[in-house]
C-alpha cells in the first residue's frame, strides 16, 4: 500500500490501482454526506479532480494520483456515503484506475513514511 500527501491510499490489485482515503483523512473530514464518483472509462491525468466528497463541514476534492483510465467505481458509496467514515481503507474505496505509467507509483510514500508525515 502506498500513500499520497493528499491522504489517499493506493493499493495494487492485479494490474489496477484501488484508491481511497486514509483513516486520518476520514477522521479530519468528519461525517461524509455526499460522494460524487467519476465516469467509468474516463481518461484522467495525475492531479485531476476526480471525486467530490462533502462532509458535514465542507466539500473536498480527491485527485487522481496517477494518469490512467477509470475502470471501476464504488457505486454503493453514492447511496451510503457514511461508509467512508466507517471503513475508509476497506469497503469505502472510491475507484480503480488502470495506470498509464506504473512508474508514477514510485513517487508515493510507504506506510511508515505516511505515518511519519501525519505525525
Amino acid at each position: 500500500m502506498k500513500f499520497t500527501e493528499e491522504h489517499e491510499w493506493l493499493r495494487a490489485e492485479d494490474d489496477l490501482i484501488v484508491v481511497g482515503i486514509t483513516e486520518h483523512a476520514a477522521e479530519q473530514l468528519g461525517d461524509i454526506v455526499f460522494v460524487e464518483l467519476p465516469e467509468v472509462g474516463a481518461q484522467v491525468n495525475k492531479d485531476d479532480e476526480v471525486v467530490v466528497i462533502e462532509s458535514v463541514k465542507a466539500a473536498s476534492d480527491i485527485l487522481a494520483p496517477i494518469d490512467g483510465e477509470i475502470v471501476e467505481v464504488n457505486e454503493p458509496l453514492v447511496e451510503d456515503p457514511g461508509k467512508v467514515g466507517e471503513d475508509p481503507t476497506g469497503e469505502a474505496w472510491f475507484f480503480k484506475i488502470r495506470p498509464a505509467d506504473p512508474s508514477q507509483m514510485d513517487d508515493y510514500m510507504d506506510e511508515a513514511a505516511y505515518l511519519a508525515y501525519i505525525g
Partner: peptide, 9 residues
C-alpha cells in the same frame, strides 16, 4: 465545533 460523537450523531 464538535465532540467525539461528531456532528451527525
Amino acid at each position: 465545533v464538535q465532540y467525539a460523537a461528531g456532528v451527525m450523531k
